[in-house]
Write a protein that binds this DNA or RNA. Structure first.
Length: 419
RNA sequence: GCGGUUGUAGCUCAGGCGGUUAGAGUGCCAGGUUGUGGCCCUGGAGGUCGUGGGUUCGAGUCCCAUCAGCCGCCCCA
């Protein structure tokens, strides 16, 4: 299991909870600066929500969902992605207000029943945003720039942004016919998977990474050339905006992505040199999804970013984000039962004053307590012995500096350590 | 879903052709220092050998299944 461990137990660097917090903090900062608000949705939703939104023919729905029946006989699924639950919550809680945008972000554990490997886990985390209520290319550009800005702030610079337009229900069927006509004579040159896709989900043939499929479809008609007027104008406007924002991108006419709900803009951020696990984020526009989920026709766009993949990318790039200092300021060393009781009171007083502190709770030797203080990285050892307590004082030893040990009155301890 | 590989102490790993009380390093605990961390020395504790079956007089070792990790494919974050 990929447990996320405290910093004090060194393991794979990216498994430290402090690093997760650091990445999440960067994401939250970027979102907050851009006017997004956090939404938290349940891990479990009705199965139907996902089969309808993601699409029956997709890999995720057909073989990768953790689905089961409740005691009451309802079919539920652990969410395999973040968008559909957000849409459901948006509708159910009336977050839409007439004629205005809703900008949301989420940090969600998601679940897919698939074979694990580096950077791919059955339970993983995605951070993402959803913008509901606008079809303006300006919004597409903001969402993409938000994702790019997140990577930039993390320091992951070895990335490439790929975009495409997958059209709309108006122009896609026409393209679909073009593609089918092109592929039909080439069917025997393609993989079994692609022959299946030919019948079930032709656009996904383009996404195949099999070399035989890539070769066969190399000169296939491009979706971007078959867009209707509205989609073409939208895509052109987005490309202009990205250039204005100085966000480098490449056009990938074969980019389709794994969800059926995408319309027009689709994009992916890949981190080069990470082998099988190249995509570290992706998203797109889904102008029909809200309606599909039972709401009013509402355009939307969003993206999802894999937290684990970001952490691995950071690790392999040798980037150390600033992480929380978990070392206590003070460690109380108590010599006997009376002193331990006194220490308990001091711990409370110090903590109330905002001074992080800890102590040993057993009857261990002074040497062992000092060793623990040192190991925890405490700045001060506060020594409570019979002698000191008889004078209502304690000995203060600086475990990191070279200052000589001194005695201080207990009454002044909180003030001394608060500095 | 497919292929390869690994699973032994908290951690990193040894354990020729199956044979008696399963080892090392590190970490942990105690002592050396009757009340003082890091360095050093000595000692100690700690293991259902991933799990479940099977073969055998006897399985950490061989066989099967299963789970998990890692790597590749597919797909995706």
């Amino acid at each position: 299991m990929n447990d996320v461990l405290p910093v004090a137990r060194p393991d794979k660097a990216w498994l430290h909870s402090a690093r997760w917090r650091a990445v999440e903090r960067v994401f939250q900062d970027v979102c907050r600066l851009s006017g997004y608000r956090e939404i938290r949705t349940p891990v479990m939703e009705s199965t139907e929500l996902f089969t309808r939104s993601i699409g029956e023919g997709t890999d995720i729905v057909s073989k990768e969902m953790f689905s089961f029946e409740t005691r009451g006989g309802a079919c539920v699924t652990l969410r395999p992605e973040g968008t559909a639950p957000v849409i459901r919550a948006y509708l159910e809680n009336g977050l839409a207000s007439e004629g205005s945008l809703t900008k949301l972000y989420y940090i969600a554990r998601v679940y897919r029943y698939e074979r694990g490997q580096k950077g791919r886990y059955r339970e993983h985390q995605q951070t993402g945003v959803e913008v509901l209520g606008s079809a303006e290319p300006l919004v597409d550009a903001e969402v993409i720039s938000l994702a790019v800005e997140f990577y930039r702030r993390l320091g992951i610079v070895d990335t490439e942004l790929r975009i495409n337009s997958v059209g709309c229900p108006g122009c896609r069927p026409g393209y679909r016919e073009q593609l089918l006509d092109f592929a039909r004579p080439l069917l025997d040159q393609m993989s079994a998977d692609n022959r299946t896709r030919f019948a079930t989900n032709p656009l996904r043939m383009l996404d195949s990474k099999e070399t035989q499929d890539r070769q066969a479809l190399q000169d296939a008609p491009r979706l971007v050339d078959a867009l209707c007027g509205g989609c073409a104008a939208h895509f052109a406007a987005l490309c202009d905006l990205l250039r204005l924002l100085e966000i480098p991108f490449s056009l990938d006419p074969h980019l389709v992505r794994g969800f059926d709900y995408y319309t027009r803009t689709a994009f992916e951020v890949v981190s080069r040199g990470l082998g099988a696990m190249s995509a570290i984020g992706g998203g797109g526009r889904y102008d029909g999804l809200v309606e599909e989920c039972g709401g009013p026709a509402t355009p939307g766009i969003g993206f999802g970013i894999g937290t684990e993949r970001c952490l691995i990318a950071l690790e392999s790039a040798g980037i150390d984000l600033p992480i929380d200092d978990e070392a206590p300021v003070a460690f109380l060393v108590a010599m006997g039962p009376d002193e331990r009781a006194r220490a308990a009171r001091l711990l409370l007083d110090l903590r109330r004053a905002g001074v992080s502190c800890d102590a040993d709770y057993g009857a261990r030797s002074m040497k062992a307590q000092m060793r623990q203080a040192s190991r925890l990285g405490a700045r001060w050892a506060v020594i409570l012995g019979e002698d000191e307590l008889s004078r209502d004082g304690c000995s203060l030893k600086d475990l990191q500096g070279g200052a000589p040990q001194c005695e201080a009155p207990l009454a002044s301890l909180v003030e001394l350590l608060s500095q």
